[in-house]
Design a protein around this nucleic acid. Structure first.
Length: 229
DNA sequence: AGCCAGGCTACCG
DNA sequence: CGGTAGCATGGC
């Protein structure tokens, strides 16, 4: 089996095992797993960016707590967060850690968002925002703007490494191209491709929480048993 | 008690 | 360029 086919087959197996993940459970719109909403409102897109920043090196459970805190303050939109007292904002996002950095990142992102005037940002534009690195840029583009940008995270690298698809010195772009080129061989429809990117990344994270969180990695992982190189 | 979490920036050589 | 300390709280 080619490397590319293995990567696509791994997606199918993960989807079979866990089902649709429906990432970014939009608090305000009640996001429904598997029911894809390809035209998100600007408030929903902002919530993706907000969640993306909060979740940096943090468990999503903590992020949900922060988002709930903001919701209680009626501050889940860019304009409402901007009106918050800085100390209140920091207190609300405190459960997610790094609240000094992240509060700044959020405010930086808000002013960046205003400069867009409704336009879809390019990846480079996103990367120019303080606090937005490669993964966050791809997260915002993939889940917020439904663009075909695969998101690589620490789990993805861990899995690809453990299964022998990459070596230790693989860079973000290497892994992203491997995933995208592999999936593109088998998924031709553009909208379906984005959906697969969204689900695949989420499925990897979900799967990795069980099999790739503690060493030794991959014990009992069926991907490792069936698709190792 | 110690390690990890759905990273990123700043600063080092 | 590549490598790494610092950021902070919460869960197990």
């Amino acid at each position: 089996m080619s490397k590319e086919l293995k990567i696509y087959e791994m997606y199918k197996l993960l989807y079979e095992m866990y089902g649709p993940q429906g990432w970014w459970p939009f608090i305000k719109s009640g996001y429904d797993k598997g029911n894809y909403k390809f035209d998100k409102t600007s408030d929903e897109i902002f919530e993706v960016a907000l969640g993306t920043i909060l979740t940096q090196n943090t468990t999503f459970k903590s992020v949900v707590k922060s988002l709930q805190n903001l919701q209680e303050l009626d501050a889940l939109t860019a304009s409402s967060i901007k009106k918050l007292d800085l100390d209140i904002l920091k207190l609300a996002i405190k459960p997610s850690g790094y609240f000094n950095q992240k509060s700044r990142y959020i405010l930086e992102y808000i002013s960046f968002g205003e400069s867009l005037d409704g336009r879809v940002p390019s990846r480079d534009e996103l990367l120019s925002v303080l606090g937005i690195g490669q993964e966050s840029a791809d997260s915002i583009l993939l889940y917020g703007y439904n663009q075909g940008e695969f998101e690589i995270d620490a789990y993805t690298k861990r899995v690809l490494l453990e299964l022998g698809f990459i070596d230790e010195k693989a860079k973000y772009r290497d892994m992203k191209e491997l995933m995208q080129n592999s999936i593109k061989e088998f998924v031709k429809d553009e909208e379906e491709l984005v959906k697969v990117y969204q689900e695949y990344h989420a499925l990897i994270v979900n799967h990795s929480k069980e099999f790739y969180s503690k060493k030794p990695y991959g014990v009992g992982c069926m991907l490792k048993e069936r698709f190792s190189c």
